[in-house]
Simulated assay, not measured.
Amino acid sequence: MSTPTQDTVLQDTQHWLVQAVIGLNLCPFAKAVHVKNGIRYVVSEATEPEALLKELAHELLLLQRSDPDEVETTLLIHPQVLTDFLDFNDFLAAADGLVDELELDGELQVASFHPDYQFDGTEPGDISNFSNRSPYPTLHLLRESSIERAVEAMPDTDRIFETNIETLEKLGLAGWLALGLKATP
């Protein structure tokens, strides 16, 4: 299988963001950031976890120093590394450790998306897993202040996960595929 071009990775990721994340309202806060062009998209060329970790450090520090009105959040997409979900999931501990090491805990956090995302206690094909399925392994770098503002604007944020499951169950796999989105496994 050939490695997709950076343009393909960006197009696939932006299509997923618009069709699934925003279109299905899986994240009620994404639309405003997207409309403001506040999302930084970075396609990593890393082929080893160590290289990705270095790139993650760079992107975390860049986000910290950036004006939130210009860069609100970053999607670090890494199609050539951590393609196995279990390896990706293990890497998240290193990502969280890096946030602590850079003394960014309480300021930035890392969320995760993967083509084979699977919540604990679910089967691989369960539609609920699709709430965190992206076309390529992706680390989402978020500002804690953005999350706090979102929570203030929408007090029942705990309900988002449940609403996402309900939305995806109504949509079903056929509906997901009809949006032009990929389905694995």
Rank of each mutant, 00 (worst) to 15 (best):
D7N: 13
L10D: 03
Q11F: 03
H15P: 00
L17T: 07
V18A: 13
V21R: 02
I22E: 04
L26V: 01
F29Y: 12
A32R: 15
V43D: 01
S44L: 03
A46K: 09
T47N: 13
E50R: 13
A51I: 10
L52V: 08
L60A: 10
L63P: 01
R65S: 14
E72Q: 13
L75M: 14
L76K: 10
L76C: 11
T83C: 13
D84R: 13
D84H: 12
D84I: 05
F85A: 09
A94P: 00
D100M: 12
E101F: 10
L104Q: 11
G106A: 09
G106F: 02
G106R: 10
Q109H: 04
A111H: 05
H114T: 06
H114Q: 06
Q118I: 06
F119V: 00
G121W: 08
S128K: 15
S128W: 11
N129D: 05
S131W: 03
R133Q: 02
R133W: 00
P135Q: 01
P137E: 05
H140G: 04
L141R: 01
R143Y: 03
S145Y: 00
A150H: 04
V151N: 10
M154G: 09
I165V: 15
I165P: 01
E169Y: 02
E169A: 08
K170E: 14
G172V: 02
A174I: 11
W176Q: 08
G180Q: 07
L181P: 00
P185H: 14
